[in-house]
Write a protein that binds this DNA or RNA. Sequence first.
DNA 1: AACCTCACG
DNA 2: GACGTACGTGAGGTTC
Length: 939
Amino acid sequence: MTDSAPSNPDTSAGSPPRRVVLVDGSGFIFRAFHALPPMTSPDGTPVNAVYGFCTMLMKLREDTKPDHMAVIFDTKGKSFRNDFFADYKAHRPPPPEELVPQFGLIRDATRAFNLPSIELEGYEADDLIATYARQAEAQGSDVIIVSSDKDLMQLVTDKVQMFDAMKNRTIGAAEVMEKFGCAPDKVIDIQALAGDSVDNVPGVPGIGIKTAAQLIDEYGDLDSLLERAGEIKQPKRREKLIENADLARISRDLVTLKTDVPVVEDLDGFDLKEPDPEVLLSFIASHGFKSLLSKVKAKFGGDVEFESPTQPGIGVNEVKVEKAEYELVQDEERLKHWVAQAEYLGTVAVDTETTSLDAHQAKLVGVSLSTEPGNGCYIPLGHVSGEAQGGFDFGDNPAESKDTPKQIKLERAIEILKPLLEDPGVLKVGQNLKYDMIVLARHGITVAPMDDTMVLSYVLDGTSHGHGMDELAELHLDYKPIKFADVCGSGKTQITFDQVPLDKALDYAAEDADITLRLHRLLKPRIAQEHMASVYETLDRPLVPVLAQMERLGVKVDAEILKNLSEDFAKRMASLEITIHEMAGEPFNLGSPKQLGEILFNKMSLPGGKKTKTGAWQTGADVLEGLAALGHDLPVKLLEWRQLSKLKSTYTDALANHINPQTGRVHTSYGQTNVNTGRLSSNDPNLQNIPIRSEEGRKIRTAFVAEPGHKLISADYSQIELRLLAHVAEIEALRTAFKNGEDIHAATASKVFGVPIEGMDPMVRRKAKAINFGIIYGISAFGLANQLGIPQKEAKAFIEAYFEIYPGIRTYMDEAKAFATKHGYVRTLFGRNIHISGINDKNGMRRSFGERAAINAPIQGGAADIIKRAMIAVPDALLDAGLKTRMLLQVHDELIFEAPEDEAEKAIKVIRDVMENAAHLSVPLIAEAGIGDSWADAH
DNA sequence: AACCTCACG
DNA sequence: GACGTACGTGAGGTTC
C-alpha cells in the first residue's frame, strides 16, 4: 500500500460503513397506521403508527446491526416530478385524520432515538433513499432499505436489498422477480409500461405487469421496444404502443428514482449513535408506550418514571386537545389560581390581545396564559359590550355600557400578573414576545426572563421558512390554529379584538398561548442539540428586550421640518414636470416607467433601450444616466424629478404619518427574524434607509432631532466588514494595513495599481474601494465593470491583481463555496448558521447566486453578530456609568443615541469602548462617533 | 399581487 | 456561445 487513493476505501481517512440502513419513514407510517389497532397517548393523540415505528426501530437496531442508519421522509407538497407531470400523485386522498398528527410525532421519535431525520423539499423520500443507497454502494457498503414499496425495488442489487419490517421479510432479486417478473434493473421499464394507478403514473393503456415483463424480456429494454414496436404481432398491442410511446417515456421519467439529489446531510453523519436515555424515555413515557419503556431501559439505561407526563419532554409534540380545558378567567380568584400554577411549574406561555398591530398605541384587551400543553386561559380585560359588537354605535362610550361583559379590572389584573411576569424564577414564553413586552411595558411590567418561539425558530432554521405562529404550528404540530381573520374578519368589516365575544376570544387567545408553549417544548431542546446555544443565549435572546426598549423610546422627528421639505420638493417637482412634458411634446405620468419607456425609446427613438424579462423598457437610474451622458436632457430632468418624488413620498410624507401623536416620536419596529444573514431589518417605518448619499436626501436627516437639552450621538463601525474579512480569511497584508491604521482603500489602490498613497488620484482610490466592496459581495468581473463603468477585461485584470496582493482571499472564497455546497449553509465566527439557497441548484445562474451569497454571508452575518453583542452590552454599560444616555436606533454598523447635553462626551467614551471590544479579532475594531442636534449633524 | 424603482448598509 | 449577476433589506407607485 503506497498511497491512500480515495478509490481504496479501506485506507481512506474515515473507513466506509459495512452496513447502511435506510428507513423509508413515510412509507412505514402509512402501513403501520393501517396494520395496527388504534392507540392513543395520555392526552388523546392517536399514536398507533408512532408506536409501531418505535418498536420497529428498536428491533432494527437489534436485528440488522447497522453501522449507519437514517430515517427518510417525504416532504409536504409537490416534488420535482410535478414540474413535468402535473397529475403525478394528484388523486391521492388526504391522509386519515388520526394519521395527521402522527407525521410530526414520527419525526420526533426519530430524533429521540438520536437518528438523523432526513427530508428535502422538492424530493420524495424514495429519491433521497436512492441517492444515499447508490452513494453507500459506491463505497462498498451493504445497504438495507427498510420498506416494502415496489417503487424502490429498482434499487436492488447484490449490495442493496430491501426489508419489509411489517412482514419481517427480506426483498432481494428473487422477490423482485416474483413481483415484476424481471430483474431489478428492468423494473423501471416494466413500471413505465404498466403504469401505476395509485401514483397516477399513466403507462401504456392495456398493458399490465405481465405483458410488460413479457415484452421487455423479448425486446431487452423500453427504448428498443418502442423503436421496434412495429414488429409486434398483436395489432391492438402494436397500435397502443406506437400511439403511447411518449406516455411510456414520461412514465419512465416518473418512476425513475433520482440518484443525484443534492442532499444536505452527509452519509458519514449517519453513523449510529446511542440515544440519550433521558430523551428517549421521556418521549416514550409521554406517549404512554408502557411496554417499550422497560425494553428501552434495559437496553439503554436511564430511569425516567412513567408517571411524569408533564416533564418538559424533549421533542414532545402533543397536538390540540379539548377546548373544554381552556378557561375564561373573569374573577380574581381564578386569575390567582393560574398565577400560582405558573409560579409552581416555573414556565408559562403568555400572549396579549390588543386593538392594534402598533404596540405603542394598542389598547390591552386581554391576556392569555398556558402552563402545560393542552391547557390555557384567557383573561379578558378590555372587551366591550355585545351591543357595540359590529353595530353602528358611535354615540356611546361602549366601555361604560351596562352590557360590558364581566371581567377583572385592568389595573387589578396588572397588579396580580406583574409579580409573575417579573419573577426571575419563572420563564415567560411568547411568540414574537417583543410586541407583548412593549404593550406590557406601557402598563409598568418588565417581562423577564423570557424565551421567544419566533426567535428560537429563526436561530434554528434561518429563513428556510417563515416564523409566524400559524406557520410554525402547521409545520411542527400539524395543526392549523384559528386564524385572526376568522375571529375578527378582514378588510372593511374587520373589527378590533375588544369587540370579539368572549367565547370566541377564549378559543382563539387561549389556543395561541397553548400552541406557543407546545412550540417551545419542541424548539427549545433543539437549541442545545443543534449547538445553537451560544447564538441564542448570548445574541438573539438577550437582544429581544434591548430592541423592545429601543422601539419604545423611538426617535424624535420634527414634523415642521418635514413639512417644509415636502413643500419645497413639491414645487420643484411641479416645475420639472412642466419642463419634461414640454421636452416630451406631450403630457405623461412621470411616475410610470411604462409611459416613460414609450416616450424615450418609441417616440424619441433614443438608443440603447433594453427590456426587462417581462418585456417592459428598462428605465432605471443607470439607463437614464447613460442617456444623459449622451447629451439628452429629458433623462437628466427626469432623474431629478425621480429623486424628489422618492424623497417626498417615502420620506417627508410617509415618515410624517409615522410620528406618534402621543410621543411626537417615530417608533420603528425591528425585524429580528427576517434577514438570512442575521442582520436586523426595520419597518413601519424603515429607519435603516433614511437618505444620506445625496445632498438633497441628507436634508431628511435634519428632521431627526434630540429633545431640548439633549444631543444625538451617532457611532459607527469603521470598515467592519473588511476587517472581518481580513480576520476570517487571514489576509496578512490587509491585517497589517488595519493594524497600522491606514486608509484601507488608498492602501489597496497603492498595492494594486502601484502608485504612492501621497497625492493619489481620487479616481484610483475609488476603483480600489469598489474592488474592496466587490470582494465582500463575491466579486465578478461583470459586476465590477458595471460598477465602475469600465470594460470587463479591465475589471478582470484588477481582480487578478487584487488576488495577487491579498493571497488568502481566493482560498477563503473557495472554502466558503465548498462548505456551503457540502452543508447547504455557512457559519459566522459566532456560530450562526446561514442557509444558502440555490448552492446546489442545477441552474448555473442560481448556483452562482448561491456561491456569492456563501462568500458574503459569513462577513455580513459576522458583522451583524458583533453589533448585536455591542447593542446588548451598551445599555448596561451606560447605566453602570451612571448616564442617562439612551440607545435609539441601529443601522447595521451604526448606533444612534440620545444624550443629555452635559453627558454626551462621557457617553461617547463608554459607547466606543463597548463597541470596539464587542469582539476581539486579529485586527482592531474601530468605532467613530459624532455629536449633533440632528442626525445630519451627528453623522 | 406583481413589477419597477430606489433609499440604506 | 448565451445567459445575466455584484451581498442584504423595505417601501411607494403603477399596472394588471
